[in-house]
Design a binder for these strands. Structure first.
Lengths: 199, 199, 199, 199
DNA sequence: CATGAATGAGCCTTCATTCAT
DNA sequence: GATGAATGAAGGCTCATTCAT
């Protein structure tokens, strides 16, 4: 039954996720993974070509989910304000992250440098994300919603800031309440960290 | 001949830095390192206990340098404004990073998850950095220089943002002009990304 | 349903023959075989004890067929000349070989060294063949049809020569016209390769 | 010292030769090989890239030696008769074979089908050998030394016959006296197996 | 009869580390 | 100090074979 197969594959994916989170990709062994599901080593290879394949499956599906969270700002009259749409995007991303802490750690701390092929895919993904955000920012600048100035550093800081916040949230360094996280980011985007500089 | 020893050790450290940057800690082999210095494999072990030791030496010295960059805000009358002191701190960090791109990549992309012992040390370092910044922020809030509100998320975003910016700078995604990088961060801290929300 | 069984078994035998020819015994997998018949892996084991069993079945049936091709020289008066009987033997062997090129390749290139048990059986078969030929040669020598001298090397060369010719025929290195092959061998047996040595 | 290395490599080559002869390439394990020399498994990989590499080294050096045995027939006046030169070629080949029985078994029974790359090299070698012999035969035919007729089958039979004889010689099925082996082949080449057919 | 998921022994290969020279 | 040959633990992967359905 393909049902059985699907279940087994899911078990292996989850076991792999846990193992990768705990030990990192390289230290993780196929034995660790199958040990968690209590199946033989060979079984693993019935479902994945090799160790890298599970890792890729995990990261890619997470990246796909992340991609789903982010939708273009709708500028048609009657649509919610860009600010609210941005907040909605943020909220979806934060919810995704908070709902799958292990994947956040895996994707953000161990995914790069694991394999040339995967690195390439991740780079492409990050590149697309960055480009998408860049276009959004450009539109925002035209509309006077986003402060003017070179967008490159803004993007790097904003994306890095999100990564930092999410990582700290899932690792318990900051409270992982979705509303609070979203508002924190919004405040940072809106007013930065320092109080209004005089003049 | 302690001079000779020191030079050899330095050669090995630099070779290791280059190799770690190129291949990541795990994929890097002791052979790669000694091959660059054109020295026998056994020689490596005359200078370092094991592979992890070089890595730690590199990361720790970088962390130490980083620690030197950051000095407490001097509130005595007559000292430069806190804003200028913050900017000076930032500038030192950015200069350090831009001056040693390889270490930035190593410390920020491959350092975590490599080894339990190293992870611990890094955590401690990050924890101290975070705590120091937290106290700084607290002072800032008391003085009305830093916007009020929970500091945890602010810290996570700010530190993550710095990481993101520095990584993108050393990898060429954004221009690595020190002044521009410093000003970008300052603007982000001062006004965020979005323009003044109306009302 | 013993008919159905027989058909299935035949399908598997033919699939195995093709796979063994292409990849050799060791590289061939049970999966390759069942994949060709589009049958599940377990099914294979309903018809054969193990991988070696199919191989043996193939080789043994080929050896049996080969054995059928070779009949003792009939010396009764009125029988065809020994030369013609030899030619007839040869023709049957050549026809068998040309009609089943895959088995020729399998039996002559990959059969030895595969498995101790099979090696034993092959050795026995070759031994019997050799012994039979030896007796035939002896008779021939007594009748003055076969040149005198030690028969061992003659046998080795003649049998090896046949193998070489048949292998080259089925692999396309020499033309595989039955008549031509038979006559080539006859000429070799009758006059060797070199022209009449002078004096 | 490179001396030590050379000795070790030689030991491993000889151990590998023995193992390949006994078990065949595929059944042979690197463990079998190092076990014979009583070194650790890793040591093997200091001298050869992988299991295939030793095998290739063995086969190629044997093929090279074989190539050395065969020299073109010298037709200049005053040179020994072509027949004697042929005999000398034969003798060198036989001596090589008798002096290294294991390699004969390896090269003639297990070398094909082991690896695509090696197969290619062997095919090229056999092809060259065949072509060389073909040219020699052609010259012989022009000079009236070699019987006329299509050379393809003659070559297949002669080469196959040699293989058969050498294999049987090294495996003890026929006496391995060099002179006798050479003369057996010469007789076969000169007069075939059957006695002079009448008329 | 047929299926195909599961098993697990076994092999190849890598590489950090040691140590005799 | 320096060398580099040797070690051997460890892990990825394959595939013949079994067995519950």
């Amino acid at each position: 039954m393909s049902d059985r197969r699907a279940r087994r594959k899911q078990q292996l994916l989850e076991a792999a996720k846990a193992v990768f989170e705990e030990k990192g990709y390289v230290a993780a062994t196929v034995d660790d993974i199958v040990g968690r599901v209590d199946v033989a080593r060979g079984t693993f290879y019935l479902y994945f070509d090799d160790k890298l394949a599970v890792f890729e499956a995990l990261v890619e599906s997470f990246m796909a989910a992340l991609g789903q969270c982010i939708v273009s700002i709708d500028l048609t009259p009657g649509a919610p304000s860009p600010r609210d749409q941005l907040r909605a995007n943020l909220r979806r991303v934060v919810e995704l992250a908070v709902g799958d802490p292990a994947m956040v750690k895996i994707a953000l701390s161990t995914a790069m440098g694991v394999d040339a092929g995967l690195d390439e895919k991740l780079s492409v993904f990050y590149g697309l994300l960055r480009q998408f955000m860049d276009e959004t920012l450009e539109t925002g600048q035209r509309l006077g919603i986003v402060r003017s100035g070179p967008r490159g550093p803004m993007l790097s800081i904003a994306l890095g800031g999100m990564e930092g916040l999410l990582l700290d949230a899932v690792s318990g360094a900051v409270d992982s309440d979705v509303d609070e996280l979203v508002e924190s980011v919004m405040r940072f985007l809106e007013s930065g960290l320092l109080d209004r500089p005089r003049a």
